[in-house]
Design a protein around this nucleic acid. Structure first.
Length: 492
RNA sequence: CGGGAUGUAGCGUAGCCCGGUUAUCGCGCCUGGUUUGGGACCAGGAGGUCGCAAGUUCGAAUCUUGCCAUCCCGACCA
């Protein structure tokens, strides 16, 4: 990524949007702040979804589906949750349109079709799900409930940004109910680990696991755990959250169970989610000026084979060999495409697949056939090599692993170089302006100080890292005593 | 929702201040041909409710008002 882009948010935004649009991932739709996810972008999401879903099932969860509409009375049951989301809810008030007598060919809302009770389009599903769980839970034998749903949600944000904050977005939300606090806490951390492992292993994006401060906590949660990632412009991005909900929703919806001892107890809850925002994270963490960079493990397309020919005769020969290589790669489970589209020239295809971030490109021409070799280029390092066709499938399979590692290591190095311990206020401000990144600093633990720092610098406490080292120090702003450092950053 | 900017073909744009023939240019698209080892070239062609609505005017892309959308800065937020 070029210096001009990293240094200014506005340019970065343009660069980012270009990649999303030219790279074929998504567009804004005609609906305010909503996006159209194009086939290539959706294929990426499907790969991410499949991997996550597999992990959810391995950890004992099952999928289900709950309604899009939440009656307002249910929505307001958990007070803090309702308050937290109230300002960004789309609300259904009517159920019918009719012809507008004053404007021919136009429709109007039929005032006689006003709903008795408004329906909130879910910004999150705790309310509708806990209202359902109430009926499902009577005895300790009914617990735990470990359910996930893949769905869309709507949050009417003031400002939208493709993938990072769209009015409608796709996500998964897990909602679990447990007999004990301990079990719920274990679940919360377990799912955070599932997220962290997936994002690091598959998306090649290093994350910091931590706990949110009170002010950054999910509305209605007792504790919010999160994974925080660092983007190439030095801004942080919350990549996933796992909430310990305590008994807040159980009490709001009166969900009690009978213990073995025949006593009524409220159940304990968790919820956790990741969204299409992860695609935004992927773009901003790995892309360069040539375009996107897909980590092989989730790349919609891992290898593209491009024929180089003059005239139909040579094409027939090259087709045969390219198809052979493609089948060899497929046999090893590699996602490969033979791009024999005759309408585009090789140079155009090279650029196109670079833009889309395909990890490995193989070019094959008559010259190569004579020597029994292919030209192979990796997207991450741009390194070009000529390799033998014998055993090419095995070579490529290893190379894909290598690329996955390389992308992760590069991001990890960048991330680690951009976590800085800071002990005085001037340096704190200077670093935020000049370099960004995470700043590890002491904080007196009060909401007032956190708020003041946000006001002065736009930096927020991203998280208190798990297993944080305890150390005596003084608050970066107030110089009050502190027992540990926390991570500050400007964030998306 | 407050401040600023923008909206003209699929994309990027000129024209707007100072109203006046058929709305400019590039990319892309279509047809034919030549091409094909890093985003080809030549020739011909198609494509427009100038964001939407109302107003001023003989006449509106251009002036006025309202609305909508996008981007940036705030507030809000995954």
């Amino acid at each position: 990524m070029s210096k001009e882009i990293t240094s200014r948010a506005a340019d970065y935004s343009q660069w980012y949007n270009d990649l999303v649009i030219k790279g074929g991932l998504a567009d804004y739709s005609a609906v305010r702040g909503c996006m159209v996810i194009k086939p290539y972008g959706y294929a990426l999401w499907e790969n991410m979804r499949d991997q996550l879903d597999k992990r959810f099932k391995e950890t004992g969860h099952v999928n289900a589906y709950f309604p899009l509409f939440v009656p307002k009375s249910l929505f307001e049951a958990e007070e803090k949750n309702a308050e937290g989301f109230a300002k960004e809810c789309a609300v259904v008030t009517h159920y019918r349109l009719k012809s507008d007598p004053d404007h021919k060919g136009k429709l109007m809302v039929d005032p006689s079709a006003k709903l008795e009770e408004e329906l909130v389009v879910r910004p999150t599903s705790e309310a509708i799900i806990w209202n359902t769980y109430k009926d499902w839970i009577q005895s300790y034998r009914d617990l735990p409930i470990l359910i996930n749903q893949w769905a869309n949600v709507v949050r009417w944000e003031m400002r939208t940004r493709l993938f990072l904050r769209t009015a409608e977005f796709l996500w998964q939300e897990g909602h679990t109910a447990h007999a004990t606090k301990e079990e719920a806490l274990v679940e919360t951390v377990k799912m955070l680990d599932v997220y962290a492992e997936f994002v690091e292993e598959y998306m090649a994006l290093p994350v910091i696991k931590g706990v949110k401060t009170v002010s950054e906590r999910f509305a209605g949660a007792e504790d919010t755990y999160c994974i925080e990632a660092l983007m190439q412009d030095g801004k942080a991005l919350q990549a996933g959250t796992s909430h310990f909900l305590g008994q807040n929703f159980a009490k709001a919806f009166n969900v009690q169970y009978l213990t073995k001892e025949n006593k009524q107890e409220y159940v304990w809850a968790t919820s956790w989610g990741v969204s299409t925002r992860l695609i935004g994270a992927l773009i901003m963490a790995h892309s360069d000026d040539q375009g996107l960079m897909m980590p092989p493990k989730i790349a919609p397309l891992q290898v593209v084979i491009i024929p180089i020919y003059k005239g139909d005769e040579s094409k027939v020969v090259i087709d045969a060999k390219a198809t052979e290589i493609m089948l060899e790669l497929k046999a090893l489970g590699i996602r490969v495409k033979y791009d024999d589209n005759d309408n585009a020239r090789p140079g155009w295809k090279f650029a196109e697949h670079e833009l889309k971030g395909v990890p490995v490109r193989i070019a094959l021409g008559l010259r190569d056939l004579e020597n029994n070799v292919v030209e192979l280029v990796r997207r991450d390092t741009k390194e070009k090599q000529t390799i033998s066709m014998d055993g090419i499938a095995g070579f490529v399979k290893n190379l894909l692993d290598e690329i996955q590692q390389y992308i992760f290591q590069k991001a990890l190095t960048y991330r680690n170089e951009n976590i800085r311990e800071v002990n005085n206020w001037d340096e704190f401000i200077q670093l935020l302006d000049e370099k960004g990144g995470f700043i590890s600093a002491h904080w007196d633990g009060t909401e007032a100080t956190e708020e003041k720092i946000k006001e002065l610098t736009k930096a927020t406490i991203r998280c208190i890292p798990l297993q944080n080292k305890q150390e005596v120090g003084e608050c970066i702003l107030t110089k009050q005593p502190s027992t540990q450092r926390v991570l500050f950053a400007r964030a998306y």
